[in-house]
């Protein structure tokens, strides 16, 4: 039996968004690129997202948000991830995040922000290049 490592990704939707079309498109694209994608549905609290990432032992988290609440929710999520010791997980974000907020998000530890219309190939490439190395 060979060692068989798969990239595990959590696609999470924090807050009160009413649809998850974008998140599902990204989830689907990453799946088709050979990754194992955990999707948890709409309206997740920061606590649920961090705990899910912990239990599922994911390599990467993609946060999708449309509501404009990223400035409140993302710091909370990043803080909880740190508290749970998940500092080696790569976090990226997508959805509606205004250009002027991107810098602030990156300071929180969110590695990349993808706006509307980003080709899924770019997200796949990004994930493949930024999966944390693990022993």
């Amino acid at each position: 039996m060979q060692t068989e490592r798969k990239i595990r990704v959590l696609i999470a939707k924090p807050g009160l968004d009413s649809h998850d079309r974008g998140a599902k498109v990204v989830a689907r694209a990453l799946r088709d690129a050979g990754m194992e994608v955990i999707y948890t549905g709409l309206r997740q609290t920061p606590e649920q997202i961090a705990e899910t990432a912990l239990q599922e032992d994911v390599d990467v988290i993609g946060l999708s948000i449309l509501s404009g609440a990223h400035k409140t929710l993302f710091p909370r999520i990043m803080d909880l991830l740190k508290k749970k010791g998940l500092t080696d997980v790569t976090v990226f974000a997508g959805g509606i995040i205004p250009e002027e907020d991107v810098e602030e998000m990156k300071k929180l530890g969110i590695k990349e922000v993808f706006g509307p219309g980003t080709p899924t190939e770019r997200i796949i490439k990004y994930v493949l290049e930024n999966v944390p190395k693990r022993t």
Binding site: A27, R31, D32, G34, I38, Y39, T40, T45, T52
Partner: peptide, 28 residues
């Protein structure tokens, strides 16, 4: 998927309220 080797794991969608209960561990 036998074609791409990837998977969409969605069973948690129905169980997410349990995810913050310390007496429960869920793994997809």
């Amino acid at each position: 998927s036998p074609f791409t080797g990837g998977a969409f794991l969605g069973d948690r969608i129905r169980m997410q309220e349990l995810s913050t209960d310390p007496g429960v561990f869920i793994r997809s």
